[in-house]
Computed example of a mutant assay.
Amino acid sequence: MSGTPDEHGTLYVVGIGPGLPDHMTKQAKDVIETVDCVIASNLYQEFLREDGTLPPEDAVDEDGVAVREDGSEQEIVRSSMGRQIELAREAFERVRAGGDVAHVSGGDPSVYGKSDLIFKMAEEEDATDVPIEVVPGMTAALGGAANVGAPLCNDFCTVSLSDKWRGWDEIEEKLRAAAISDFVIVLYNCWRNYERAVEIVREERTDDAYVAIVNDAGREDAGRNGESQFITTLGEAADHDDKVSGMGTSLIIGNHETETWSNDDRTYLVTPRGGRDVDDF
């Protein structure tokens, strides 16, 4: 392999977690603050302006260029679902011209995020000369788990309920296998078919298994519907559709060992690691 030309920049696929400053890594913040071009949706741009990671909106001219406090110029490009292919091609060309580009993804870019699109587009466009670095971020499974306690301390898996790119038969097969295998299951994209998913898991698990419904983990009041968490059971989870508020909702379905623990503050969800006792530590 001949290596990347010296004059090329780098394409960063950056996960910003929920998007607010406290839950974004220093690496993600540093990259976004120093690249020549940031590609991000309006919502993520809004989050990134919370602490000055991006310049304020009134500092961006009609061409999308902002002058940062250190005097450097940075172009800010709005992304949307309908422009992903176009923007990937544009990012490749910017890198070839010597620019560093941050393509922003919520959560972690490799957990139902932007990473796979960038690599598939690089393959499609024969962009083997474009350096790509993935900057990890906190995904909803981890943020949601932290909000409700320690439900992921044993084996767990994530399943997306979106049937946009795969059929429901495949989703059902994975759900059933996860339920039978006694994984703690984290459901993403719960605005689609979440009641259907719950009913499938109920066929393989007892109705008293614990479930946490978590909205906008780590976003406080800045998300679409506000941060919240609610603990219920598998048998009653489908009855709480008023708690499932859209794309920011995740369900954490406990296994046979998942239990609740309460202190004077609130009730937590805990999955012991293999049923260890305190003495085992």
Rank of each mutant, 00 (worst) to 15 (best):
S160H: 03
S115R: 03
G226M: 10
R166F: 05
T139M: 11
D126A: 10
G107T: 08
Y12M: 12
C37S: 08
G9D: 02
K164F: 08
V13A: 02
R166G: 06
A59Q: 14
A238V: 13
R96Q: 01
R68L: 09
N255E: 11
N42I: 00
T260N: 09
G274C: 13
Y44I: 04
M24F: 08
I252G: 07
G3N: 07
Q84R: 11
A178S: 11
L175E: 07
V201R: 05
F92C: 05
G9Q: 00
L175Q: 01
D264F: 12
G19K: 02
A102E: 12
E93K: 12
D22I: 03
F119L: 14
A179R: 03
L54Y: 08
G3K: 11
E73R: 14
N193I: 06
I39M: 15
A217F: 08
R276A: 09
A177N: 14
I118G: 13
R94H: 05
G113M: 04
V201A: 02
A66S: 14
I76V: 08
L11S: 00
A146Y: 10
G226C: 14
G9N: 00
A238Q: 12
A150D: 03
E236C: 02
D36C: 04
T53G: 05
V101A: 02
I76Q: 00
S79D: 03
K114Q: 15
A197R: 02
D108L: 11
D182S: 13
G17R: 07
R68I: 09
T258M: 02
A140Q: 05
G17A: 07
L48R: 00
M1Q: 10
G82M: 09
D182C: 06
A177P: 08
H8K: 01
D277K: 15
M138G: 05
G71L: 09
Y210H: 15
A40W: 00
F92V: 10
K243W: 12
R196I: 08
I132D: 00
A91R: 01
A102F: 06
Q45K: 09
D129T: 01
D61H: 09
G218E: 08
I132Y: 06
F183C: 11
D155V: 12
T34W: 01
G274S: 05
L152I: 05
M121D: 07
W165A: 10
I85F: 04
D280V: 05
R273K: 15
N154Y: 12
P136L: 04
S80D: 04
I85V: 14
H23M: 03
